[in-house]
Design a binder for these strands. Structure first.
Lengths: 226, 226
DNA sequence: TAGATTGTTAATCGATTAACAATC
DNA sequence: TAGATTGTTAATCGATTAACAATC
């Protein structure tokens, strides 16, 4: 098992904890920029709307170097979170599907900070292939034919694939990716992909967000209705 | 408490259950299109990678009209899920932030099906205001000045706000929305919004997805490394 | 030292899974 | 009727919260 300098195993963090870490990371980064040297679990909890005991438990799992009476040394905690979240190891990714969403993701300036580099963008549509991509934090690039994706993935040992194609072709794209050696897929198509156990998929499913909001709106009375 | 025709209270579904419903909905819709009349919990579980007992429990909470020996009547279950998820009550929404992501969401064809109608799109950037929006499933529209948002929300009694502005202005936009009467916010800006209790926020935070993938890639050995 | 805040243990809470009588 | 599959109860599992001795 992977062990850290303070002997904390970091493989197998509870998923809810893992999903809170980016939020801590962002909040503490802001604190550092703001000149704060230490930050306490209570303060983090207040800013993020998370129970302070929860914050302590989460941070003790990944770090455990808080100073009683003072809190967490913000800069070092960021360093540690960068390490745990893999923000330092630059992950090259391919993106398949150069539609509106694909291009929006490509242009998203935040990814660089998190060690995500989009190495190439592909599409099957001949009207799109060859188009120049705008706003590249990843450099000026041209949309390539999707046929070339597996080869590039293999040659560059790319491990992360981003899927922004329509639902009906998403599984095919995923299959190609996996055959070419991709180990993690970020899927924005509205379909649940079937993948082998060792491949991780993250489904970014807008229908879920919309449903929770819609449920709230239809089942919670307005002040007018009360 | 809201009660349904079969006397099942539907307020306060467990959140994990609620978040699985859109997935069931999509899978069963596909089954209907495919001509399947009944579908069993075991089959749903297989297609979605969910434990079959889980499927039964979820569906019994919202419907409870499965037929032992046969399964669930697909078409009626869809009707029921539409009702629970509020897909019938069209929710008018405003979208603030007509950047790449905002325009991608505007053009997303799936929303109409789920009862989401984007009534107007706003931005503060004078270079963007007045631009025609492309690909509107919501009709041809022009980007309006963000100053006009609160007034339109009030006049049209709009309840849902979508935020696709940069992080540093998201809270301000949210405040304006809430003051104007918005009850649910779909936030795509990378920041945790502070809102009053009665307002619901859904944070669509890409950093979380990226972090889980990145964590997997950095902490799971490649076949090469084994 | 006194005050503040940690890391951890134990208690609580809630969700998932297993099992099976009821029933189509 | 026999076979299949439900809805629900009970058992398990895991995550959150409370409490507090340890310690800066």
């Amino acid at each position: 098992l992977t062990q850290t300098t303070d002997n904390r195993p970091v493989v197998q963090l509870p998923r809810p904890t893992l999903e809170r870490l980016p939020t801590y990371h962002r909040c503490i980064s802001a604190a550092v920029v703001n000149g704060e040297q230490f930050i306490s679990s209570a303060e983090l909890g207040r800013r993020l709307n998370i129970d302070e005991a929860q914050v302590r438990r989460d941070l003790s799992l990944v770090w455990g170097k808080g100073r009683p009476g003072l809190g967490y040394e913000a800069a070092s905690l960021i360093t540690r979170l960068d390490e745990v979240l893999g923000y330092n190891n630059v992950a090259d990714a391919v993106l398949v599907g150069a539609g509106r969403l694909g291009r929006a993701l490509y242009a998203y300036p935040g990814f660089k900070r998190y060690g995500l580099e989009i190495a190439a963008v592909f599409d099957v549509d001949s009207a799109v292939i060859g188009q120049m991509l705008q706003g590249g934090a990843h450099g000026e690039q041209v949309v390539l034919s999707a046929i070339k994706m597996p080869d590039l993935v293999r040659r560059m040992h790319i491990q992360l694939g981003i899927i922004t194609v329509p639902a009906d072709s998403a599984q095919l794209v995923a299959n190609d990716m996996i055959k070419a050696g991709i180990r993690a897929i970020w899927n924005f198509a509205p379909i649940r992909l079937k993948v082998p156990n060792e491949v991780m998929v993250r489904h970014e499913d807008l229908a879920i967000g919309l449903a929770t909001l819609s449920y709230h709106l239809t089942h919670t009375p307005t002040s007018l209705e009360l």
